[in-house]
Design a protein around this nucleic acid. Structure first.
Lengths: 339, 339
DNA sequence: CTGAAAGCGCTTACAG
DNA sequence: CTGAAAGCGCTTACAG
């Protein structure tokens, strides 16, 4: 189980280890012929660089980190993350970069994990998800100077990369669609109010409702769990002027809403139209299937990794906008009930 | 942004770097007093070991790897993995060990990832999930000598750790429960036939059906997706002697079955009892809520990590058995219909 | 108990 | 184009 080292390759090739290093890394400093010879020997011996040695001298960890700050239970049932992660990895593994994952309960723990990773130089950069409007991780990332990319809207002075979609436009199109179907009492069950994108979407919702002259916008805030989604739905449906359509900030709450409506004897979509937040497999798993905002979460992850790797490489931070989510209409939405 | 090194600490403490290393690692070789002085200086300077340097000399990567060999879509909607991962990390982060994650499409790609990780010494060990009865990863792991723990039944010569639950007993108890409710036509919608635990459960199911004298056991195999779960359900319910109860190998298929039953006008649980495989949040998200086999997946992950870390530490591989999954009865099961 | 030194496996100026 | 050497930041025998 002895490792093959460049020393061994150098010996066999009759050159110095420096030459081997140059050859292996495709840098100038060796003739084409010796390069070819060295590569062949390395290949024959099954040589692989020692990550540790490489990191120590090259000062690069060849890994990036993703800290997920959520309780395990809400993570599990939320299909977003696995799709996002596999998008990240599509890009990372092509670049021989590892993905270090940590799941923690809150941002305080996330900050600690970030500090430790960076102090140990375990990662070259970070992916930040679930951004808060006031986010404790951002000042820390700035202080440390870690390359990082936001899975969310651009922020600050442009030192951080950002990959995002136009949530406001997506919400707009949802409201437009419902209004076109004749709905005038439209409510929104929002996600965690601390999240930046929750705020963006709520603001867009309010603006759209006012623009259409639908009266005072009704928004209920939740923590994204099915329990709160159900409670919010129950509250909305209990009022005499109950909404004829509700927009949910994720899929899990929309599914929960379906049950509440059924229990309360409110027909979907006959008396109530339901719109889900992301278009995960959950939406087609239930009846009626859920109309939802669709977007390519794998691509989202892939682009996020790409922007991060560029930064790690020393190129400037970019902001990349994904295609705006588009409504996929299914059975949970229909024309507003008469009257 | 200069790193604090043990050289700096040694200088300030007036000792050699060797002494600093001993002190920092809690090994003998320094007096209590100098140790305390060194620790204090390290703390004041905010010293953190360089992972790369440590790995290079200590020959340990301080990371373990998890390769998930599944298409991204089926991963996303399957709540198992995130819960398992957060269990792993509960243990790993306590031991300052990173979790490297890779998502690939099949076992061939998984084997490649494993070889590369090990050749680069990026990981100290591996967690293997979704074990096939014939698993291409096992001979490779044996060949390389990578410490690895199976999230599944023990195998081979005991060189690998294993953490598992008694699936057969769990299936037994499910069948017993249904028989006690008067069911005599019970079918099973199984997961991927190549998976070891699928085979175990199917065998247990057949045995239980025969033991109760319920005739020829009916089993339909699937790939775990909601689509195949729906198709299997449709096939089973289309027969004149349709089952009055069906056991599903995961939650997603059980949810899909609910829709099929509804579309076919088969009442759940009045005419059909539905049992789900794992007890994830999905089960309480639908109506009727799903009776399911409950077990603590986070604990499963935690124990898996623990066994692996022991092996990385040089201790012998262990096999650890989780508590047997227990049936959580909800609205989707009831007494068999009369007649 | 302590110090000086070699070594882990690479990368990278620096001379030839 | 090529070689010899220093250095990355630790750990660990090996002498004193």
């Amino acid at each position: 189980m002895k490792r093959v080292t460049i020393g061994e390759i150098a010996e066999r090739a009759g050159v110095s280890t420096g030459a081997v290093s140059y050859a292996l890394n495709g840098r100038p400093g060796v003739s084409e012929e010796t390069r070819r010879r060295i590569l062949e020997i390395a290949d024959r011996l099954g040589w692989r660089p020692s990550l540790a040695a490489r990191s120590l001298s090259g000062s690069r960890a060849h890994s990036v980190g993703l800290v997920l700050a959520r309780p395990a239970d809400t993570l599990g049932v939320e299909p977003f993350f696995m799709r996002f992660i596999s998008g990240l990895e599509r890009e990372l593994s092509g670049q021989r970069t590892g993905l270090l994952l940590q799941v923690v309960a809150d941002h305080a723990a996330a900050v600690e994990a970030i500090r430790l990773w960076w102090a140990e130089r375990r990662v070259d950069g970070l992916v930040l998800t679930d951004l808060y409007a006031q986010d404790a991780r951002l000042p820390v990332v700035a202080e440390l100077g870690v390359p990082a990319v936001l899975a969310g809207r651009p922020r600050g002075d442009g030192a951080l990369g950002a990959v995002w979609a136009d949530d406001a436009a997506a919400v707009d199109s949802s409201v437009d669609y419902l209004v076109a179907l004749g709905h005038r009492r439209i409510a929104r069950v929002a996600g965690l109010p601390a999240l930046d994108h929750t705020q963006v979407r709520v603001a867009a919702f309010r603006a759209a409702v006012l623009r259409h002259g639908l009266g005072e916008p009704r928004v209920v805030e939740t923590d994204y769990t099915p329990e709160e989604g159900a409670r919010a739905t129950r509250a909305l449906l209990s009022r005499p002027d109950r909404p004829t359509a509700i927009l949910y900030d994720n899929d899990v709450m929309a599914v929960a809403a379906l049950n509440v409506a059924q229990e309360m004897g409110v027909a979907v979509p006959g008396e109530l139209s339901v719109l889900a937040g992301d278009d995960s497999q959950l939406c087609v798993l239930v009846r009626p299937a859920l109309t939802a905002l669709s977007w390519d979460i794998q691509a989202y992850g892939l682009h996020t990794a790409r922007v991060l790797l560029e930064m790690v490489d020393g190129r400037p931070a970019r902001s990349h906008q994904e295609r705006t989510p588009v409504l996929t209409v299914r059975g949970s939405t229909a024309a507003a009930p008469a009257g």
